[in-house]
Simulated assay, not measured.
Amino acid sequence: MRAVTVEPGVANSLSLIQDQPEPAPEEGAVLVEALSVGICGTDHEIIAGLYGEAPPGADRLVIGHESLGRVLEDPTGTLQPGDLVAGIVRHPDPVPCSNCAAGEWDMCRNSLFTEHGIKALAGFARDRWRIQPHFAVKLDPALSSVGVLLEPTSVVAKAWDHIERIGHRAEWQPQTVLVTGAGPIGLLAALLATQRGFTVHVLDRTTGGPKPELVAALGATYHTVSVNDLQVEPDVVVECTGAPTVVLDVMCKAAPTGIVCLAGVSSGGRRINFDAGALNRELVLENNVVFGSVNANRRHWDLAAQALAQADQNWLSSLITRRMPVERYAEAYTAGPDDIKVVLDFAS
């Protein structure tokens, strides 16, 4: 079978293998036929050799962690042939730590977790893959063309879950949300904010392309000014750019008792001048909270599936700006200037 693989740590080793072995039964009872795989920044960093870890005993890693497929067989009876599913990316560590033991493997304390297509588990960019039933998320059949968005949606579902938990430390009646960055994570974060009835503002530096229209279609407001020039005092900020200046500016922009969720990852290595004392004063005197969020557990994946089922399917389809057949994998994994979400299709 076909599989898109890399040699971890070796830049530009991306290759389409035509004779990849069938997934071993040890990988999971559920056998799935791949329909599509989403591509994100993590994939580009793995292809660049920045990180990635092959399964034990393997030289190459099958990449792809944003999945969509149809069940071929499940001898446990949990799922039925034909069911539309996505595979949960992270699996708990074998020790396990206290959080992994409680099913909160997204909050692993010892970093011994594994991740499909990223760390020590084969990914989903192959014709067929296996997974244990508990890590297969069933999707509404109506999501057959957009269900590949489930993984990034699970990330923002977790972010909102934690925002709401933190918010209930006191009487909490948020009204205004600011999302910085209008990539897939930012747009999906805005979607979940509008589903909650908030007034939503999205900030991105892009002036053309589909992003402004996608934001407007949600009933949200699109901005291209700097954070400091925004005439908005948000109760909640979901920061999705990872840009250091934006990260620091939104911490000072939040309203009193505001919550800032950092969902973007900075590359590091860049120094900027910043008044840390002023930031400390803002956070302490206004009882504000800043926290980081990444990955998701089963609860968040289920919440994400519900959110996608409730969303406008045409809007979700518009997030997918390129679909490429697996034979054109190299082109698919080459970032384009107007890309939001690129999808590699395995189905005919």
Rank of each mutant, 00 (worst) to 15 (best):
F274M: 07
V237N: 01
P244E: 05
R270W: 02
S226N: 06
E282K: 14
E233H: 10
H300Q: 11
V232G: 04
D235L: 01
A216M: 01
R328C: 14
M324T: 08
G242P: 04
L248M: 15
T245S: 15
L308H: 07
E233I: 12
N287H: 15
V289H: 13
V326M: 02
Y222H: 06
Q310M: 10
L203H: 01
Q313Y: 03
S318D: 03
F274D: 04
E282H: 15
E233M: 10
E282L: 09
S266A: 14
L214E: 02
L303T: 08
A311P: 03
L319N: 00
G258T: 08
G258W: 10
D249P: 03
V227Q: 05
G292E: 12
S226W: 05
L230F: 00
G209V: 00
A309I: 00
N280D: 13
L279A: 11
A307Y: 06
L230K: 01
L214P: 02
S266N: 11
D204Y: 03
R322K: 12
H300I: 02
R298V: 15
K211F: 01
V247A: 06
K211G: 02
S266M: 12
R271D: 15
N280Y: 13
A217S: 14
V250W: 02
R323E: 13
A296W: 01
R270P: 00
V289S: 14
T221K: 11
A304Q: 04
R322F: 09
N297V: 07
P210L: 08
P256E: 05
M251G: 15
H223Y: 07
P325S: 09
V265G: 04
A216Y: 00
C261K: 03
N314F: 07
F274T: 10
M251F: 07
E327P: 03
E239H: 10
A220G: 01
L214Q: 04
S318A: 14
N228D: 14
L308A: 06
P244M: 08
D275K: 13
A307Q: 02
E213K: 08
G208L: 08
A255L: 04
A311C: 06
P212R: 08
K253L: 11
D235G: 06
G208E: 10
P256D: 08
R271Y: 13
L214N: 06
G269M: 08
N297G: 14
D249S: 12
T321V: 05
V227I: 12
